[in-house]
Design a protein around this nucleic acid. Sequence first.
DNA 1: AATGAATGAGGTTTCATTCAT
DNA 2: TATGAATGAAACCTCATTCAT
Lengths: 195, 195, 195, 195
Amino acid sequence: MRLSTRRRLDPEVRRLEIIEAAERLLKAAGPDVRVEDVVREAGAAKGTFYLYFPAWDDLLEAIRARLLGAFDAAHVLPPGADPKADWPRHIDRLAVAFVDGVVAMGGLHPVIFHSDFAQRRPIPAADHPVSRLTALIRKGQQAGAFARLDPAATGRLLFAVMHETADAVVEGDDRRKALAAMRWILGRTLAPEAA
Amino acid sequence: MRLSTRRRLDPEVRRLEIIEAAERLLKAAGPDVRVEDVVREAGAAKGTFYLYFPAWDDLLEAIRARLLGAFDAAHVLPPGADPKADWPRHIDRLAVAFVDGVVAMGGLHPVIFHSDFAQRRPIPAADHPVSRLTALIRKGQQAGAFARLDPAATGRLLFAVMHETADAVVEGDDRRKALAAMRWILGRTLAPEAA
Amino acid sequence: MRLSTRRRLDPEVRRLEIIEAAERLLKAAGPDVRVEDVVREAGAAKGTFYLYFPAWDDLLEAIRARLLGAFDAAHVLPPGADPKADWPRHIDRLAVAFVDGVVAMGGLHPVIFHSDFAQRRPIPAADHPVSRLTALIRKGQQAGAFARLDPAATGRLLFAVMHETADAVVEGDDRRKALAAMRWILGRTLAPEAA
Amino acid sequence: MRLSTRRRLDPEVRRLEIIEAAERLLKAAGPDVRVEDVVREAGAAKGTFYLYFPAWDDLLEAIRARLLGAFDAAHVLPPGADPKADWPRHIDRLAVAFVDGVVAMGGLHPVIFHSDFAQRRPIPAADHPVSRLTALIRKGQQAGAFARLDPAATGRLLFAVMHETADAVVEGDDRRKALAAMRWILGRTLAPEAA
DNA sequence: AATGAATGAGGTTTCATTCAT
DNA sequence: TATGAATGAAACCTCATTCAT
C-alpha cells in the first residue's frame, strides 16, 4: 500500500503535517474522522500518530491551540487606554473578525468548539478568546468609553453573542442581519451611561 | 421459562419509565451512560429499549422534547400586546426561569444541549425556546415597550446570552453577578429608543 | 464467513464451549493463541468472548480452575488418620496421577503454569494442589507414618519435585527413571525417623 | 548535526552498559521493562540496542548467561573424589548460595527464569546449574558419601527443590523454615544407604 | 558504530444494535 | 410485547523492530 518509502522528517514538520491533514479532513467531513483517516491523509503510519499525540483529544487540542493562537496573533490590543481611541470600533473589529474566522473554519468549528471534546477538555482560561474581549472592555472602561459593568461576567456573555452570531451565519442565516443584531447588542450593552 | 417475570406494561408507561430512568442517570453521571445502564435502571431488557426508541439519539430527543415542553408549559405568554404590561419583567422572568431550569438539570444539560447529539439532531425551529423569546420580544415591541430591532436575529443572540449565563452558573460563577450581567445586556438591548 | 446463523445458547454452555475451544488450541499450539483464534474455534464472535471473560487472563484462570478442580475431584483424601492405611502409597498415587495429568495436558501446561500469566495471577493458596499434598502429609504424620517435618514448607518443596518430574517427562526424559527419582525423594523425605 | 553527543565506545563496553542497565531496571520493575526503557537507562539510542542484540530475547539470554556464569564462578567443585571431604557440606553450600543468589536478584529472577522467555529459550543443558549439582552428586557418590541414585534425574529434581525454596523465600516465606525443609530433603535424599 | 523517527501488526476492549426465542 | 445472548465494526493503543540519515 505505502508507495513511497519511509519518510524521515523533522519532528516539528511531521507534527504539523498530521495537524494539517486532520484539519483538512475535519473541515470537509466533520466529526466522523478517525485516526486511520488522518494518517492516510498525512502519509504516515498509525503508530506515528501516537508518537506525536498520546490520544485523539490531544490532536484536537493542538488544532484548537493553533486556531486560538492565530486569532490572538491577528488581533493585537491597542496598547494604552487612550480616551481618543475609537473603542467601539475595536470591539466591532474583534467581533466581526471572530465571526468571519469561525465561518472560515467550516466543519472544523463544531468539532473543536461544540463536540464532546469541548466538554472533556475545556479551554484553559488563559487561552480563551473571552479574555481578549474582557481585556478590551476593561481598557475601554478606563478610557471612559464604556459603561461601568462587570467586565469578566459581561465579557463572557458578549463573547457568547459573538459565537452565536457565527453559528447563525454558518447555519445559513443572513450575514448582514446577524451582524447587525450582534452590533446592536454590543453597542447598547457597552455604551456609557448617559451623563 | 419464567415468562412470569416479564412485566407487560402499557406502552406509554414503559416508555416513560425508560425516559425517566435515563434522565436520572444522565443527571447524575453525564455522558458516560449506556443503553445497558438505562435498561437496568428502568428494570427492562435491552431489546425492550429498541422497541421504544429506534436508536439512542431518539431517546435523547424524547428527553429534550420533555424538557422543552416543560419549559414552554411553565411560561405562558401574556395574551395580548398590552401596553401597560411590564414587558421587561416578562423577559426577566423568562430568563431567570431558564437559567434556573438549566442549573437544575445537572449533568443532563450538557448531554442534551452541548454534545455531539445536539449537532446530529438540531432542535426543530418550532420547538426551540428561542421562538418563545422571540415571540415575547415581538409582543413587547407591538406594545411599544421594546426597541425596534430584528426580533428573530436578536432573539437568537439574547437566548445565547441566557444560555451562557446558565453555563456560567453551572460552572461555578457567582450566580448574582452572572444574572446581573445578563440583565444588563437584556435591558440595554431591548430598551426602547429614547424619545 | 459465519455460515450458520446466530446461535443462542445457554450461557453456561457457551462459556464452556469457549473454554474448551481455548483448551484445544492451547494444547496444540501453545502460547501463541489469540482471542481471535479462540472465538473462531468456538464458533462465536469476538464480542461474545468478552461477554464471558473480561480479559484474556480470566479465560486462563477459568481453564486453570477446571484443571485444578479435576485434579481435586480425582483424588479424594482418605478420611481419618488410620495408622494401618498405606500412607506412602497414597502419596505415590497422588504424585503419579499429578505427573500423568500434567503430561496429558500437552501445550496447555506451560501456558497455564509457567507463563507470565502464572506470575500475574498466582494460584490462590486454597486452590493450590500443594494444599492437598500438605494435608496428606499431615494426616500421615498423625498416623505416625511420616517423619516429623514441617508439612507446609516440605509439602511445597515436594510438590515442586512432582512438578519438575512432570516437566521432565514432558520434555522427553525417560518416564520410568524420572518417576523412580521422584519416588526416591518422596520416600526418603517422608520416611519416619528410625526407632 | 550534534555528532558530538554520540558516544563512540568500545563495543564490549557498550554491550555491557546495556546489559547492566537492563539488569537494574528488571531488578526493580520486573517484566514491564521495554527496549525503550533500557536504552534510556543506558544512555544509548534505540537502534544501538539492535546493533548488539538481534532481539529482546537475546538480551535476556545474555543476562542469563552472566548470572549462570557468576554462579559457576562462585562455586568451584572440589577437585577429586576425596572420601574425607565433607560432601553433604558442599551440597549445602551450593544450595544456600543458590537460594540467596536468587533472592538477591529481585525482579530479575522471574523474568529470566519463570517468564515466557524461559520457555522460548530453554537453558542449554551445559550451562544449566543442574549440571553442577549433578556433578557434585556424582563425585560424592564416587567418594561413597551419597546413596546410589540416578544422579541426572535426581539432580534435576533436587535442583527444583532449591529453586522452589528460593521462590518461597522471595514470596515472603520464613527463610529459616524454608532452608530447613530444603536441607531435610537434600540430606535424606542423598544420605547413603544404611550399612 | 550510532541515531531516533517511523513502522504496522497485533492486541484489548467497548457498546449500539440485532435477532432467535 | 419482551427478553438478553450474540454480534462485529470500530476505536484505542503498544512496542519490538526497521531503516534513512
